[in-house]
Design a protein around this nucleic acid. Structure first.
Lengths: 112, 112
DNA sequence: ATCTTATGGTCTATATATGAACCAAATGTA
DNA sequence: TACATTTGGTTCATATATAGACCATAAGAT
């Protein structure tokens, strides 16, 4: 048996993922879509959709987001346009920050 | 070369992931944290962190969320407590919906 | 009650994401 | 300018997520 890499997750991450999954399941049922239908539209297997809806932490973020879009769950509470605007704003902000984080090499009085 | 599975993503998914990645990078720099430092705290490689910050769609959602937490980016604009409350509310909602989606087998006048 | 179908769970093979060790370039500091 | 280090980009081996085929049960129509 190969040595496996076990990750640790904070409660916050676990709950955020769980909430997203549950929101997806609710949205899917409200729209009366079968698990198989949504899976087909997303181009994934039904099994993977189940894991997503159960809040499995080890799913590609792209697939999870895609499923969310399909059933109508908004990310960031934002529509397409708002999302794009936020990206621009964030990139502006980023351009003002130093490009690399410089650590005071030898703790003169390192932070606190 | 084995046949690869190429997924398609909507613009919305791509931008949501990109935005999240950029928010993480901004937050990291604002807190003056090195990529290596954050990677270590998250228990991932620096390379993976770079992909996350670039908005790579094929990263585990759990890892992405975990990194977000580490640098202080809130998911769902909600703190721990609010998140938990939302979960309860969503589960209540879910319990009221039919447990399986029933499709009218032979389109009597299928929906619209 | 019966029948159809949606859901949840296994298992296996395979595609693929990840870690690690590189290197080169860019960046900020003294 | 020179120097230390952060960052971005490779490549490769390996751990692992996913698809797909199952099966059993649950759920909701008729």
């Amino acid at each position: 048996m190969p040595k496996s890499i076990t990750r640790t997750y904070s409660r916050y991450s676990r709950e955020a993922t769980l909430l997203l999954g549950e929101l997806i399941r609710v949205a899917r049922k409200e729209r009366k879509l079968t698990a198989q239908e949504v899976a087909d539209r997303a181009g994934i297997s039904r099994g993977l959709l189940q894991r997503i809806e159960k809040g499995d932490l080890k799913c590609e973020i792209g697939v999870v987001f895609e499923v969310a879009v399909i059933v109508g769950v908004k990310l960031f509470d934002a529509d397409e346009t708002t999302l794009t605007r936020h990206i621009r704003q964030t990139e502006d902000k980023l351009s003002l920050l130093p490009k690399s984080v410089r650590r005071k090499s030898k703790a003169v009085h390192d932070d606190f």
